[in-house]
């Protein structure tokens, strides 16, 4: 079972809660915020494997006639072909690795696909006694899209185990990719006008993708912003964590929240497992 943690807004406590939950219920932790993977700081994993995530980009061969059909058909303007001077130019920052150019090329074997690494997938364990898996995607600096990395991580998840998927902020393609894989979505909310605004946007997405959902209210200061949201949208509250300077200080030192707020985390975990129907031993 895959449980995704999303928030819309950044800094509301996704990683804090995802690593805290993984630690509390011995779930595999999967860091899918490949732009800024930070879960490792809170779980202290032992990485045993690091593989490149590769995508395929086109390269022409000596069979190329420089007809330019590939460049004309490319929807991402990633190719320019010049017949006169026999140039085949790929702008790989624009390439989406869709393979269209190879498909539409009228000459056999005139374009071949070569691999390019866009980042790494690191895996290992974070709890030596219990062999709990840790996986993280790390996007290479300068690469624009983490989606191929996330897809590769998803294809290796073990469905029979409990996996906590830590998402990137926002509500664009990488977040869609994470929610797609989820059996249950946890909203990590911050009860401020910013937090509510962004939570509503990502919640729209969760609804459109038809996933069961629950809410954790983080940095709770006693106002009703998110309680009202929960009532309005009929989203169950799994628990609350108070706004507290000492939590921020512990976060800064990468201390796992489950070590300090163990009561809250246990309470949230119980509610979460009840809602998802997952039996945890």
């Amino acid at each position: 079972m895959n449980i995704a943690i999303v928030s819309g807004k950044g800094g509301t406590g996704k990683t804090t809660l995802a690593t805290g939950l993984a630690y509390t219920i011995n779930a595999n932790y999967i860091d899918m915020d490949a732009g800024e993977p930070n879960g490792r700081h809170f779980l202290d994993p032992e990485i045993s494997k690091s593989i490149d995530c590769e995508v395929m980009i086109p390269e022409n061969t000596d069979k190329c006639t420089y007809c330019g059909i590939c460049a004309n058909k490319c929807q991402f303007s990633a190719l320019a072909v010049i017949e006169k001077t026999k140039k085949f130019m790929l702008f790989d920052d624009l390439c989406h690795h869709c393979g269209l150019c190879v498909e539409v090329c009228p000459v056999k074997d005139a374009i071949k696909e070569i691999s390019k690494s866009i980042g790494k997938i690191n895996s290992g364990i974070f709890n030596k006694q219990k062999n709990i898996n840790f996986v993280e995607g790390v996007l290479k600096i300068g690469e624009t899209s983490s989606v191929p990395l996330l897809e590769q991580i998803k294809s290796n998840l073990v469905k029979e185990q409990l996996n906590i998927l830590d998402s990137a902020p926002g509500s664009a393609c990488p977040v869609v990719s994470v929610i797609e894989a989820a059996d249950f979505v946890v909203l990590a909310g911050e009860p401020t006008p910013f937090g509510l605004n962004d939570l509503e946007i990502v919640f729209e997405l969760v609804k459109a993708m038809d996933k069961p959902v629950g809410l954790i209210i983080n940095k709770y200061m006693g106002n009703d912003l998110l309680h009202d949201f929960s009532k309005r949208e009929n989203v169950p509250i799994l628990g609350t964590i108070p706004f507290d300077r000492s939590i921020a200080e512990n976060y800064s030192k990468s201390i796992n929240i489950a070590e300090l707020q163990s009561k809250e985390l246990k309470h949230i975990s119980e509610n979460l497992l009840k809602l998802t129907g997952y039996h945890y031993e």
């Binding site: 950044g10 915020d33 732009g35 800024e36 690469e143 624009t144 899209s145 926002g170």
Partner: peptide, 10 residues
Amino acid sequence: GPPGIGCPVI
């Protein structure tokens, strides 16, 4: 600007 290092940031 947006958070992260991906396409909207670039």
